[in-house]
Simulated scan of single mutants.
Amino acid sequence: MTTADQVRTERTEARPLRADAERNRLRIIAAARDLFAQRGLEVTLDDVAAHAGVGVGTVYRRFDNRDQLIEGVFVEHLHEVATRLTAALESPDTWNGVVTLFTYVGESMAGDRGLASVMMRIDHTAPAIETAKLSMTSLIEQVHQRGVSEGVLRPEIERTDFFAFFTMLSSIAEVTESTAPGTWRRYLELMLDSIRADGTRHPLTVPAMTDEQIRAAQAARCRTR
């Protein structure tokens, strides 16, 4: 049976329960993220179906093509960030909420090697992405306002600075994780010290990169271009 025949067959089956459909969607996205990290963005939807352990028609029912799947992976990432932002707002300790949020951003980029490629590939003006970003921006504004009003963030910090903070963490995690794992945590510590309202400084717990690690990181980056 061809892929097209499989798709037609599965589309004639009864619609799955909503909970089952959502579980399958998340399995597909998780499988895609895993394959993107291992093999790049050129994997097929058939590859993703096999890796997710679902029928190929289940994948095509959710995503018409690979670009839609790539977009879906990024939208899910934005939803995860929004969940962390909500948790930061709900934390009784505002500063701890900020630290947890920033740590998650670094961990997600360090742990998901395909995410950087996804971010470069997708159309950031796509409606689904714009909607997810609007929700995330609103939450960032609330985290920022709470941090400043409670005196844990420097008053000069603006809401839009969060974009730069996240980008810096994402970039250092992407560049160094394969050659100097965990290095991004050093720069997270420096960043957090720089935005504290009380001006306190804490000892750095992660050593600086060696010259050899820097050369290895530069070589690895050249190979991926």
Rank of each mutant, 00 (worst) to 15 (best):
I122E: 08
D123V: 09
L69Q: 12
I214N: 06
A217W: 00
V73L: 07
A87T: 09
S91T: 08
R146Y: 05
T3F: 03
V54P: 04
G97C: 01
F102E: 04
E156P: 00
R186D: 06
V206R: 02
P127L: 01
D198F: 05
P207S: 14
Q6T: 14
I28S: 04
L45G: 11
R215Q: 15
M191D: 01
M1E: 10
A50N: 10
S170I: 00
R154W: 00
E156N: 03
I29H: 09
V43M: 00
S138H: 11
M120Q: 09
G199T: 02
A128E: 12
F165T: 03
Y60E: 06
R11W: 10
R201T: 13
R8H: 10
P92M: 01
S171A: 14
P207C: 13
L192T: 05
T125G: 10
A220F: 12
R225W: 15
R159C: 15
D5Q: 15
D20L: 04
E189N: 06
E42V: 01
A21V: 05
H51Q: 13
V206L: 00
V105Y: 05
M209N: 09
T125K: 07
T224V: 15
A32D: 10
E13G: 09
L78N: 13
L153T: 06
R33I: 00
A208K: 15
A164V: 11
I140Q: 12
A208I: 07
A219D: 13
T9V: 11
E141R: 12
D5V: 14
G182Y: 05
R146S: 15
T83K: 07
F63A: 03
E80P: 00
A128W: 00
E150D: 12
F166N: 13
R113V: 11
T86I: 04
A180K: 06
E90P: 01
V118D: 10
L89S: 06
A32F: 05
L69A: 14
D93Q: 06
N24Y: 11
T94M: 01
N96Y: 01
A49D: 11
S117L: 14
T183K: 07
V81N: 04
V148F: 03
Q68F: 00
T131S: 14
V105N: 06
